[in-house]
Design a protein around this nucleic acid. Structure first.
Lengths: 221, 221
DNA sequence: TCACTAATGTACGAACCAGTACGTTAGCTA
DNA sequence: TAGCTAACGTACTGGTTCGTACATTAGTGA
């Protein structure tokens, strides 16, 4: 994530605003994801960087703004991943399944991001609201879904009455829950939703679910 | 002039251990749900009861145990609701749809419970693990799902390869996400998942999704 | 090379907050 | 009715934690 172009430094302070900020963001992401907003300790973040607490306030202003910056970067990562989506050469069914699988994989590979989103929801998205970047970040995935959905619905293959936002919610629900709630679910029902042995099962389940929903014969009234 | 909602009592303190504990749990539930575990303030909980902080420690021992007690009661409520389920006189398709709708409604009606579950997952279910009650609480809903699923699969109506736990996860995902993540989802995509005007749409969407999944024609390889 | 500024480090303070020591009283029962 | 104990209140403490005042240095441009 951080570019590695720094050779060995002899001694004393090095000055590199970009690297210092990136390092603070890296560690802050871990700390906020680990402990939540109120559980996170600014001193702990500082201790785990090569700089001091002073610099966190110098660059970010405060704990709130630091958390906002962490969110901004985290959402930036998923947005980039979505921009790399390449499914529109497939037929609608295969395209949607692929998209669901990519979403599934992304959630699995970024549990810290999932935790940050949970935390931000506990705080009723106040940091997103306070962020200028995040307000208008948009979602490339939504555009992709829109186009696939249009193709599928035109051809009569997709019968469901959904738009891209709703379908995105459906897919995200399953992927998010599986990662975010695995602890309580595991403790209460004795099943680890993220057990690698069951990974393919759930991945297929998600795809089957979405496709079945989209292509089901409707008993219209 | 004090408002008298209790039967005539001379003056000063009243003594009622049961009521005091219940009141602490009520307020603590709100406070923990509002602010998360670390964000919640014991002093704030005490201030909003008719008793003092001393009694929280007297009855519950500490903040951790209080949170555990809050979780125990919250899970008790959902368990009771599940025991009231009466869907097994319906045919499998109608029964599953009804069950999904009941789950949907319960999530919508208990946003504080949803928040507590999110919070407990941030803490990796450590309080559930520490609770003797919650370890073996079981789930009446799971038994109901099992039986409906068996009926549906025997008759060949249900073709999907799922068990009760997986189906429960699928249904819960959607219901949970819609409530828990409504803030970030709304902020990012401009759609309020809990808008009353869209309530029926999502309720139907959930039922359609689950039934479509269970009854889809399988292209077995 | 000299001055200026961005970047950094140290030390500290003030508020907050979980938890407790100690004292008091209501209500029951012997 | 005396005495006992569960139930309650007050006032405080010790540690924690966000934030900052003040001091310092690296690098840059004139």
């Amino acid at each position: 994530m951080t570019s590695v172009d720094e050779p060995a430094r002899p001694n004393g302070r090095i000055r590199d605003a970009v690297r210092t900020q990136a390092e603070i963001l890296d560690v802050a992401t871990q700390e906020f994801a680990r402990a939540g907003y109120d559980g996170a300790r600014v001193d702990e973040i500082a201790a785990r960087t090569r700089t001091t607490k002073r610099m966190i306030y110098y660059y970010f202003g405060g704990k709130e703004q630091l958390f906002t910056a962490v969110l901004e970067r985290a959402y930036g990562v998923i947005r980039e991943a979505e921009q790399g989506l390449d499914v529109e050469h497939l037929d609608p069914v295969a395209a949607i399944r692929k998209l669901a699988e990519v979403t599934f994989d992304h959630h699995e590979q970024h549990p810290d991001f999932i935790r940050l989103v949970s935390i931000e929801n506990i705080h009723e998205a106040e940091h997103i609201a306070a962020s200028e970047k995040l307000g208008k970040i948009g979602s490339p995935a939504l555009d992709v879904i829109s186009r696939i959905l249009a193709t599928g619905q035109e051809s009569g293959l997709f019968t469901a009455d959904v738009d891209a936002v709703d379908l995105h919610a459906m897919i995200s629900s399953f992927c998010f829950f599986r990662v975010a709630n695995r602890h309580t679910f595991g403790a209460l029902f004795g099943r680890d939703l993220t057990d690698p042995d069951r990974r393919e099962h759930y991945r297929a389940m998600l795809g089957d679910m979405v496709i079945a929903y989209l292509t089901a014969e409707r008993t219209t009234d």
